[in-house]
């Protein structure tokens, strides 16, 4: 991928995930992980009233190629080995597709629902206030569990269940 498009996508993700909710306060804090972490780009912490309330990992994929015509899916590719690596993390993991032209990001769960390569992500879950709050709640639930292990995300790709 073009380096500059990747840099733009990571910056766009940071802007979207750290949008303020109450006044000027974000509900997430995202940290770039750098090239030494090949499968994930960001560690994202949940900001709570009593400090950090959990975390998750994100792989960001950015495109200027737009959407599929049939079901409006963003054309980003995640190779099979990355999908498998994401699913193996003992923490919630997500893929975020960034439409660099429109400046929109879409989140989809990558917690083992699918282990083949990804050629597009659905546009069902844009990173907006509602989905940020849903994301915060589901990751919080995961870390609040006494035995965090199996994890079911609401940000499932509806197409994965059909394949």
């Amino acid at each position: 991928m073009n380096d500059v498009i990747g840099a733009r996508g990571e910056s766009r993700f940071l802007m979207l995930i750290t949008e303020p909710h109450d006044g000027e306060q974000p509900i997430f804090r995202a940290q770039r992980l750098g090239d030494k972490w090949p499968a994930v780009d960001f560690l994202v912490e949940l900001m709570g009233s009593d400090g950090v309330a959990g975390f998750f990992f994100v792989q960001v994929k950015t495109t200027r190629q737009g959407y599929t015509e049939r079901d409006r899916r963003l054309k980003v590719t995640v190779p099979q080995h990355t999908v498998a690596r994401l699913a193996s993390f003992p923490a919630p993991t997500y893929v975020v597709g960034i439409d660099d032209v429109a400046g929109i990001g879409y989140v989809v769960s990558a917690n083992g629902e699918r282990l083949t390569n990804v050629a597009s992500v659905p546009s069902d879950f844009p990173i907006n206030r509602e989905n940020r709050e849903r994301l915060w709640s589901e990751v919080r639930r995961y870390w609040s569990s006494r035995l965090p292990g199996s994890f079911t995300s609401v940000f499932n790709d509806p197409a994965w269940g059909m394949s």
Partner: peptide, 10 residues
């Protein structure tokens, strides 16, 4: 700082 840098890159 984080958001200023992200804005600058964009």
């Amino acid at each position: 700082e984080m958001r200023a840098e992200a804005q600058a890159i964009l």
